[in-house]
Amino acid sequence: MNTSGTIAQASPLHRIREIVPELGGGPRRIAEAILADPLRAGESSITKLAATAETAPATVSRFARKIGYQGYPALRSAIALDNGRTAQSGWERDIGTAITPGDASRDVLDILAGTAARALRDAAAVIDLPLVERAAEAITRAERVHLHGEWADSVSVRELYLRLLRIGVPVWAHDSGPRTLDLVARTLTERDVVLALNRSGKDPEARQLLRAARRVGATTIAVHGSPDSALAKEAALSLYTGVRNGSVWTQHFAGRESDTLMTSLLWLLVAQRRSADPTMRFVDDGTFEGPHGTEDLSEAP
């Protein structure tokens, strides 16, 4: 986990959400009590939180150390600080609550801005950079790169496609059905890279494409919001975006921010590598030598 610098520090609430699936008994009740009422947790004594979670104060201390704090006082201070950030970002309400038709425009804007800021901060703290670097190296050296993402997943995939295309990467984007993906799979070789983006990690077509690519020796990359998903296990390089897949719209919005962060990081790392290699095309400078001379692409996407 990258913990260098204040911006990259994951919030304590994010750390707790990440670890909940691994917990049981008293530790799980502590985590659920904190997540159910972060404001109260930021002010509670260790005995009060233990009583709420129906466990012992010593268990609360061990829980705090388990998620990276020296003890409960340090965890409580971090939660209180996070609550302050939340208020400053316009997060007076739970981001899991749907925005209602009666909300003022300023409230809607504050919720969206706060959601995006939190998502980026949390994602930056947990993205596995060495793994992303390996993915970027594979894309840089690939003979062909195939990208797949459907519906909302296709938004970040489409931008990644355009960015890679502009720096000379032989890349294709596929957002159509299983028949097309089956045809794509038949053309793959061990010199190709296949990247599938699917937040839930449950898309059977994405899994099938990665499985087919793996059979022929192609490098497989999964970008997702579910580390324990079937898709994550199907790929050689499993890139968790740092924000878990959610069940309500504001959580999906947060996830999309982390998707964009991941795909932007990928293409920039690829651009760096291509720029440093004289045998490859340099980073696009905004111009393109077309059949009728130089065209200005400075206003292109």
Rank of each mutant, 00 (worst) to 15 (best):
Leu239Ser: 06
Ala173Ile: 03
Ala213Trp: 06
Ala230Thr: 15
His224Gln: 08
Ala173His: 09
Gly246Ala: 15
Asp228Leu: 10
Thr180Gln: 11
Arg179Leu: 11
Val184Lys: 00
Ala173Cys: 08
Ser247Gly: 12
Ile221Glu: 04
Val243Tyr: 04
Val184Met: 02
Arg214Val: 06
Gly246Ser: 11
Leu197Ala: 07
Leu195Phe: 02
Lys233Asp: 14
Arg207Lys: 13
Gly201Met: 07
Lys202Val: 12
Val184Thr: 09
Ser226Trp: 00
Thr250Val: 15
Gly225Met: 07
Ala196Gln: 01
Pro170Thr: 07
Ser247Arg: 15
Val243His: 09
Leu239Val: 12
Ala222Leu: 05
Pro178Arg: 09
Ala212Ser: 15
Pro170Ile: 02
Ala222Phe: 02
Val194Met: 03
Leu231Met: 05
Gly242Thr: 10
Val193Glu: 04
Arg179His: 10
Ala173Arg: 05
Ser229Pro: 03
Leu210Glu: 06
Leu239Arg: 06
His174Met: 10
Asp203Ser: 14
Thr219Ser: 04
Asn245Ser: 15
Arg199Gln: 15
Lys233Asn: 14
Asn245Gly: 13
Val193Met: 08
Thr180Tyr: 10
Ala212Val: 02
Arg179Asp: 11
Asp228Cys: 05
His174Ile: 13
Glu190His: 12
Arg199Met: 11
Leu231Lys: 01
Asp228Gln: 11
Pro227Tyr: 03
Asp175Pro: 00
Pro170Tyr: 05
Asn198Cys: 09
Gly246Glu: 09
His174Ala: 07
Leu231Asp: 00
Tyr240Asp: 13
Arg186Glu: 14
Ser176Thr: 09
Val243Thr: 13
Ala222Asp: 01
Arg215Asp: 12
His174Glu: 13
Gln251Asp: 12
Thr189Leu: 10
Trp172Tyr: 08
Val223Gly: 05
Pro170Arg: 13
Leu195Met: 13
Arg215Asn: 11
Val169Leu: 00
Leu210Val: 12
Gln251Asn: 11
Gln208Glu: 12
Pro227Glu: 07
Asp182Glu: 13
Leu209Ala: 03
Ala236Gly: 14
Ala222Cys: 02
Lys202Asn: 13
Tyr240His: 14
Ala185Tyr: 03
Gly225Ile: 06
Thr189Ala: 12
Pro227Cys: 04
